[in-house]
Amino acid sequence: MTLSLTSTAKTYPDGTRALMPTDLDIPQGEIVSLLGPSGCGKSTLLRIIAGLEKPDEGARLLFDNEDFTHLPVEQRKIGMVFQSYALFPNMSVRGNIGYGLKMQKLAKSEINTRVDEVIALCQLEPYATRPINALSGGQRQRVALARAFAPRPRLLLLDEPLSALDAALRGQLRDELAQLLRSFGITAIFVTHDQDEAMAIADRVAVMSHGKIAQIGTPEALYRAPESEFVARFIGAAMPLGRHIETDTLHFETGSLTLPAPATDKLAFVRAEDVRLDDNSPLRAKVISVTFMGTHYRIALQGLAPEPVFALHAALNAPKVGDTVGVSIDPAAILMLPNEKKAA
C-alpha cells in the first residue's frame, strides 16, 4: 500500500476523543474521500496525515513502507489544498504556483519548467499573468491545485475544496476537480460533508461517525449495500419503513410486503426513488406535502412508517395534499439492516 495508517487516534488534553483508533490503507493513485457530518473526526484524520496534529501514542503512519509518523510537516512531501485556497492576492497565477518551489530553493529553470507543466495540465495558460483577484472561483481552484501539485508531492490532501463556492458553481467544479485529480495520477484524500461531492469524485468513500470509519467502499457499494442505519441514511437518505417485521413479512397499517428472505430482528429502509405511486396497490398512504423539483415531484406520505416516507413522482401532475394514494415498493429494493438498538 502507498499509504498505511495503523491505530491512528487523537485525544485532546481535556479528554475529548476526536478520533478513535483508525486503520486505513490506500493504494497508489487512489482518490479517497473522508465523508461525514461536522465533528465526526474526518478533518482530524486529515490533519494528522498532514502533520498538523500529533496522533496519540501507538499510531503508525507509513508511506511506501517509510514511517513518517513523527516527521515534521515540511519533510512529509505532502501537498495541501485548503478550504479558502490560501492564495496570495498580490501575486500572479505564475507567482502563486512557483512560490513553494522558490521556498525549496530550486533552480530558476527548474521552477519555470514545473510551473509551465502544471499551468498546461490545469489549463491555466490564458490566466498565467493575471492577479488572483481577477480570477473566478473555478480558476482559483485550479491555481490552488496547480500550486499544491507543482512540488510533486507524493500525496495530495484537500480540505472541503468546494465548500467556499456557490451552489451553481459547485456541480460544474466537482466534475472538473475529479478530472484534474485523475490527470495528476496522484494519491489523494479529500474531506467533505457533501455526499454528492464524495460520490462523484472518489474511488472509495470512508463514511465517518463519532470518530470512527463506519464503512469504507466504492460509492456503488456504499449506496447499494450499506451496513448500518447511519450509512444508509447518510448515503442516499434511506428512510425507515413499515411498522414491524414478522419472519419474511413487512407489515403496514393497510397491507404487507413479502421480503426476499427472513429478516427477523432487522429494520427495513427504502429510498425515495424506490417508492412509487400505484393506484392498483393495496398499500395506502396519505399525501402530506408535494414539492415540485423540475424533473419530478417529491411527495411526502403518511401511514407507511412512524415518520413520513417520500416518493419521487415523475409525471406531468401530482396528487393533492390530503389525497389518499396507492403505493408500491419493490421488495428487492428494501434495505434490511441490523437493529442496532436491539443489539445494544
Rank of each mutant, 00 (worst) to 15 (best):
E307N: 13
R114F: 01
C122I: 00
E66Y: 13
L34Q: 06
G236E: 09
Y12W: 13
E229L: 04
T249Q: 11
D116C: 01
L277R: 08
L135R: 10
L46Q: 04
S7C: 03
A178Q: 12
F63Q: 09
V81G: 00
P37C: 00
T249Y: 10
R170V: 08
V115D: 00
I213H: 12
G171C: 00
A178W: 11
T69V: 08
G51W: 15
S136L: 04
E253T: 13
F310A: 04
D14E: 03
H70D: 14
Q141Y: 09
G36C: 12
L312H: 11
A188T: 09
A148V: 09
Q83G: 11
K42F: 01
A206G: 05
T258K: 14
A272E: 04
E125D: 14
Q139L: 04
V290C: 01
P72F: 02
K320E: 14
R60D: 01
E125Q: 15
M91G: 02
F269N: 13
T249P: 10
R47T: 07
E227I: 07
R154P: 06
G41M: 03
L316Q: 14
R276D: 03
S209Q: 15
S328W: 13
K266H: 15
L301E: 03
I97M: 03
P153D: 07
G41C: 06
T247R: 15
A200H: 05
R154T: 07
L259K: 11
P219A: 04
T258M: 05
V275D: 03
K341V: 12
R142K: 11
T295C: 02
I235V: 11
G137T: 05
P240C: 00
P89H: 14
G294S: 07
D196S: 10
V327A: 00
L169D: 10
E57P: 11
I299F: 09
L277C: 02
Q139K: 11
L241H: 08
N133F: 14
K342P: 11
Q172I: 14
L259Y: 14
L312C: 03
S4K: 13
I48E: 03
V73Q: 05
E229N: 09
F149R: 02
I189A: 06
Q141P: 14
L241M: 04
V118K: 02
S289W: 05
P240D: 03
N112E: 14
T254L: 01
G100M: 06
T69D: 06
P282V: 02
G236F: 08
F88T: 13
Q139Y: 12
P153Q: 02
V118E: 01
A167T: 12
P131V: 10
P338V: 04
A305W: 13
A198L: 12
T291V: 10
F82S: 07
Y85D: 02
A315L: 07
D67G: 11
E125F: 06
I132G: 00
A232R: 04
L3P: 07
Q28G: 10
A198T: 11
D56I: 10
E110L: 09
R76K: 06
A146D: 00
P27L: 00
E160N: 12
I48M: 07
P226K: 01
M80N: 03
G242S: 04
I97L: 00
I111F: 01
A86R: 06
R142Y: 11
L62K: 09
H313D: 00
M91S: 05
R182I: 05
D330V: 03
L173Q: 15
F310T: 05
L34G: 12
G303N: 13
P338W: 05
D323A: 06
D64Q: 15
P260R: 11
F184Q: 05
D67W: 08
